[in-house]
Design a protein around this nucleic acid. Structure first.
Lengths: 190, 190
DNA sequence: ACTATAGCGGAGGGGTACCTCCGGTACCAA
DNA sequence: TTGGTACCGGAGGTACCCCTCCGCTATAGT
């Protein structure tokens, strides 16, 4: 199922041919993922290269601009979310929706910096965003049709609400889940 | 009513005596408010001084550290919120709560950067936070006692939910209000 | 008007990040 | 093994930012 082809999600950045180069490429992506998550979009590129055990020149060869690196990390995350949506498709309507949203929370909590920065209108970002919406919308519409979700709420409303919640600083995981549950209660039809 | 004394909210930073110095002080605060709102906590202090039409030395004399400046801006905001809570006290329970929360949204939307940065545990921040909680909690408890707000939600849960929502990027003001209303519906007793 | 001084501002030293460039390294194919 | 070359890495130029220091200026009291 997750072998399915998801076109238009491939980054324009090319994964290198040589074995050592591929190792460096992957190490950079991993380091960047961590750095963006913890330090935000402005994380030092030199620090990322250091963390990856690679020279700064290697970083710039693979990702000529900061945005290229940001995109590469972001696209990977989006892809995971699309897979999660497919996986949740088999569950009952409301459960499928909330399961996916919880997965979304995990995703957005770590990567909110990226999410924020990519609210801009670069073409590649719009493509990725569209892919994620395409994956999540069916889950939401199914919950609406089953009468469990309010019909005066849009999927975009829902997603922004949830992503906003994940960005807030919570005392602990439990509080975040509790608050998410409260907010989702507002989406439930009465 | 808003003449009431609110102790422990005064900043350790002293407003200068001389007229020209006070002008500079106020200009710096205004510039800092804008800069922190738009560029985030890391906004350039030299840029803030430039924006205020003041030399960098003047900035440092009034606010020796970045945190001092951050505090000064933040404390002003908190004070406004406390006043807003007093103003809302006359309304019916649920309306009083939501009115204040909408005011909170306006506040947090512009200043989320500051809010985030101040999630740390500096003593002065805890004091300010406590003042705000003291102002808002009565509104919430009144809504609970009138049976309009759920009793399994804490004020802290509520505030973090709302502040999270304001941090999310919304398409427009209308969407933000719509989403806030949905989330607050989750807080309403059934 | 005059003076003591609170307050000003920006030059400048130190630091860090960005990005380019190119001599050197190590992979892969034959 | 060996050669060709894809790839490496970090020195270094540029640009900003932080913060201090001190000669100068504008204010307020007399």
């Amino acid at each position: 199922m997750s072998e399915q082809i998801r076109p238009a999600l491939r980054v324009d950045v090319r994964r290198p041919q040589r074995a050592d180069a591929r190792r460096n490429f992957d190490a950079l992506l991993t380091a960047a993922r961590d750095a963006f998550a913890s330090k935000g979009v402005g994380a030092s590129l030199e620090e990322i290269a250091r963390q990856a055990g690679v020279g700064i020149g290697t970083l710039y060869r693979n990702f000529p601009t900061r945005q290229d690196l940001l995109n590469a990390v972001y696209f990977g995350e989006i892809e995971e979310l699309c897979i999660a949506a497919e996986d949740a498709a088999g569950l009952p309507p409301w459960e499928a929706l909330t399961t996916w949203l919880h997965r979304f929370v995990e995703y957005a909590a770590t990567k909110r910096a990226i999410w924020e920065s990519l609210n801009r209108e670069s073409e590649s970002f719009q493509t990725a965003r569209a892919a994620m919406y395409a994956a999540g919308t069916p889950l939401f519409e199914r919950a609406q049709q089953s009468g469990e979700a309010r019909k005066d709420v849009s999927f975009d409303d829902l997603l922004r609400m949830v992503s906003g919640l994940t960005a807030a600083g919570f005392v602990d995981q439990a509080q975040r889940d509790r608050v998410l549950a409260i907010a989702l209660d507002g989406v439930r039809a009465r």
